[in-house]
């Protein structure tokens, strides 16, 4: 199940590293949780509990939506009335915020989430053709999830890794100096269960 964290070494692009990388990544404490991988349905009580827990923070709506997405992987429309009720906001207000921020997903994502930086520094380092390659490789366009639910491809505008352009994030793991070959190698290493 940890294979999705592995391709850290892949940036180096040497085949012999891959197995080593697998072992190492398994013990990393710096891996990012991707709990939505296991969440197929969402739980109203959980959403209400999150909102309850955070409601006394000033400007609580953003932290609440953030946490809901962290827990569920997305923010179903049905959450909106629950959050609105707890925070004493209108549904419209919650919806307005939800739809403003590109991070918030209003549909369930695929099992693997690929983010590709499309900003200038990465453009200067071949990011445009890399993005084209990734679209072809994953078989889906930016902002979409592949029909089989295996991948969601999201554009991102700067990851702050401009000194290591072009940059890509695969399931929360940041990758620098990505080439089409390295990207393909990383994807092929993803756990088959998740594909």
């Amino acid at each position: 199940m940890t294979a999705k964290f592995v391709w850290m070494t892949l940036v180096l692009g040497r085949e012999q590293d891959i197995q080593f990388g697998l072992l190492l990544a398994a013990s990393q404490k710096w891996t990012h949780r991707v709990p939505w991988m296991s969440t197929t349905r969402w739980d109203k009580a959980k959403v209400a509990a999150i909102a309850q827990e955070l409601k006394d923070k000033p400007g609580a709506l953003m932290p609440v939506l953030r946490r809901v997405q962290d827990e569920l992987g997305w923010v179903p429309a049905e959450c909106v009335p629950i959050v609105a009720e707890v925070l004493n906001l209108s549904r419209a207000e919650v919806h307005g915020v939800l739809s403003f921020y590109h991070d918030f997903r209003r549909d369930p994502p695929g099992r693997n989430i690929i983010k590709v930086c499309r900003a200038e520094s990465c453009q200067a380092m071949g990011g445009v053709s890399l993005a084209e390659h990734i679209k072809r490789r994953l078989g889906c366009d930016f902002g979409h999830t592949r029909g089989d639910g295996s991948f969601t491809l999201e554009p991102v505008y700067c990851l702050g890794n401009c000194a290591c352009s072009p940059a890509v994030v695969i399931n929360g793991q940041l990758l620098g100096r990505v080439t089409p070959e390295r990207f393909d190698a990383a994807i092929s290493e993803l756990d088959e269960n998740l594909l």
């Binding site: 070494t9 940036v11 990388g21 710096w30 890794n161 940059a167």
Partner: peptide, 10 residues
């Protein structure tokens, strides 16, 4: 994170 994106953890 930049160094990590290049394999620093590994």
């Amino acid at each position: 994170s930049g160094a990590r994106s290049l394999g620093a953890d590994t």
